[in-house]
C-alpha cells in the first residue's frame, strides 16, 4: 500500500509539533523517520496509525483519503516503543488479541486462530513461548512478540516506534535483520521511527530526516550520506 502525506501539520495547544509536511511513500518500502527527540517523527507515525489526528492536511492510502479513518479502520500494525504487550495475558493471547477482537462475521474460528498464532510464533523464531507471560520474556523476545501481534491482524502497513530503542547493542543488530527479513517476506509498507542514524542507514530503503517538526531531506541512505542537503543533515549524519 502506498502512503501519501499531504501538507500535514499538528499543533498541541500553541506549540507546533509538525509544520506542514508532505511525503510520498511507495508501496512495499521500508522507511526510516530519522531525527532527534522533538523532531516530530513520532507524531507523524502516530498520525499515520490514527492515534493522533492532524490539525490540517490529508493522508492518502492507495490514493483514497484516510484522514478521517479511525484507528481501528486503519488496520495499521503498530509496534510501540516499550512494546505495550498486555501484561496479564500470555504471549499466545497477546498475538490472538486482534483476531479475537474482530466482529463475529470476520472472526476466525478457535482452531484457525491457534494455527495463525503458531505460524506467527514460527515467523519470529520463538515457537515455544506461547504459554509465557510478557514479564517472563527478555527485551528482544518482547519486541518480536509485539511484532507478531501487529502482524496477526493482517495489517495494510507496519508502523514501529523506536523498535530497537530499549535493547542492548548486540540484540539490536540481530533484530534489525529480523525486521528486514519480515519486511521482505510480507512485502508490507513499513515505517519505523529512530534517532539512530546508523540503524536507519543500515535498515531502510528510504530515509526521512526530520528536525523541529520539518522534513529536512528525503532520500536513499547513500544519497543522504553523499549529498546532505542542509547543514543539519550533514551534522546529524556525521554524528
Amino acid at each position: 500500500m502506498n502512503i501519501e502525506i499531504e501538507e500535514i501539520s499538528k499543533a498541541f495547544g500553541t506549540t507546533a509539533a509538525l509544520h506542514p509536511v508532505s511525503l510520498s511513500i511507495p508501496s512495499g518500502t521500508l522507511v526510516a523517520l530519522l531525527g532527534p527527540s522533538g523532531s516530530g517523527k513520532t507524531t507523524l507515525l502516530r498520525i499515520l496509525g490514527g492515534l493522533e489526528f492532524p490539525s490540517a492536511g490529508r493522508v492518502l492510502f492507495d490514493g483514497a483519503d484516510a484522514t478521517g479513518l479511525t484507528v481501528q479502520e486503519r488496520r495499521a500494525g503498530f509496534v510501540f516503543q516499550s512494546y505495550a504487550l498486555f501484561r496479564h495475558m500470555t504471549v499466545f493471547d497477546n498475538i490472538a488479541y486482534g483476531l479475537r477482537a474482530r466482529p463475529r462475521k470476520t472472526r476466525p474460528a478457535g482452531p484457525e486462530i491457534a494455527r495463525r498464532v503458531t505460524r506467527l510464533l514460527d515467523l519470529i523464531k520463538l515457537p515455544d513461548i506461547g504459554a509465557r507471560y510478557p514479564s517472563q520474556l527478555s527485551g528482544g523476545q518482547r519486541q518480536r512478540v509485539a511484532l507478531a501481534r501487529a502482524l496477526a491482524i493482517e495489517p495494510r502497513m507496519l508502523l514501529l516506534d523506536e523498535p530497537f530503542g530499549a535493547l542492548d547493542a548486540r540484540v539490536r543488530k540481530e533484530l534489525r535483520q529480523g525486521l528486514r527479513d519480515i519486511h521482505d517476506t510480507t512485502g508490507l509498507t513499513t515505517v519505523f521511527v529512530t534517532h539512530d542514524q546508523e540503524e536507519a542507514m543500515e535498515l531502510a530503503d528510504l530515509i526521512v530526516v526530520m528536525s523541529m517538526g520539518r522534513i529536512e531531506q528525503v532520500g536513499r541512505p547513500d544519497d543522504i550520506r553523499a549529498r546532505p542537503k542542509t547543514p543539519f543533515v550533514r551534522e546529524f549524519i556525521s554524528a
Binding site: 484507528v71 510501540f80 498486555f86 486482534g98
Partner: peptide, 11 residues
Amino acid sequence: AEEEAALTLGA
C-alpha cells in the same frame, strides 16, 4: 500504551 495497542489491533 496498552490501550492504544488494543485500539490499533481493532478493538
